[in-house]
């Protein structure tokens, strides 16, 4: 029964994928290859295409593979499956957190995690930045540089600053994404 198989496979992925999108990708990759739902090459191709689709990688993969194997119902079941475990876990945590935070030890643990979060996020920005601006994926990849990326970066930095000066409000990041897409088309297409 393909529908059940899809639902439970992605339920498992949702329940065990710790550590963000790429952990998710390798876990999904294992199950998908094991069932023969995709070949390794298709999987790699998809990982490339997936990045231009908004939304968490897990949801995108569940929708795509679910559709491929079981049409609309397959897509729906796979997506619900991948989201359900974390939904339940977060509900439980959300219900308990205020009581738990009263324990100083729990509080010390959770607030202790916070500085590393900023470090992780900045590291993501730095490594993504190296890839986007210099084509650097790891220490051995050759450097490449394109002046057009700097033009777009300048726009993306200048617009929110100018807006804040003039209107005294934060510029919408969503609008900024739209602007950067337009400049991408103008400069790279």
């Amino acid at each position: 029964m393909i529908y059940l198989q899809l639902f439970f496979t992605f339920l498992k992925v949702g329940a065990f994928a710790l550590g963000g999108g790429y952990a998710m990708l390798s876990l999904i990759g294992d199950s998908v290859l094991a069932y023969g739902w995709m070949t390794e090459e298709e999987l790699l191709n998809f990982a490339g295409v997936e990045t231009v689709i908004p939304g968490p990688i897990a949801v995108n993969m569940a929708t795509f593979i679910g559709y491929d194997q079981g049409g609309f119902l397959g897509a729906l079941l796979a997506t619900v499956g991948v989201v359900l475990p974390s939904f339940i876990i977060i509900l439980i945590i959300a219900a308990l957190i205020n009581n738990l935070m009263k324990y100083p030890a729990v509080n010390a643990f959770i607030t202790g995690m916070r500085p590393s979060l900023g470090g992780l996020i900045l590291a993501t920005a730095a490594t993504m930045g190296l890839t986007v601006f210099f084509g650097l994926e790891n220490v051995s990849s050759p450097l490449s540089f394109d002046w057009r990326t700097v033009v777009i970066l300048a726009v993306v930095i200048a617009v929110p600053i100018a807006y804040k000066k003039l209107v005294k409000k934060e510029f919408s990041p969503i609008l900024l994404i739209v602007i950067s897409a337009v400049f991408g088309i103008l400069l790279f297409a």
Binding site: N45, V49, T51, V52, R114, L117, G118, I121, L122, T124, A125, A126, M128, G129, V132, F133, T149, I152, L153, V156, I157, P173, L176, I177, I179, S180, A181, V182, F183, G184, I185, L187, F188, A189
Partner: peptide, 30 residues
């Protein structure tokens, strides 16, 4: 969809914006 070069061009722009958004979120936290 995979052959649409306009999507890829738009995405190159978006990637830069995403780097900016993530970096500014991190700096705000800092």
């Amino acid at each position: 969809f995979m052959e649409l070069s306009i999507v890829m061009a738009a995405f190159r722009g978006v990637q830069i914006c995403v780097v900016y958004l993530i970096a500014s979120a991190a700096l705000k936290m800092l």
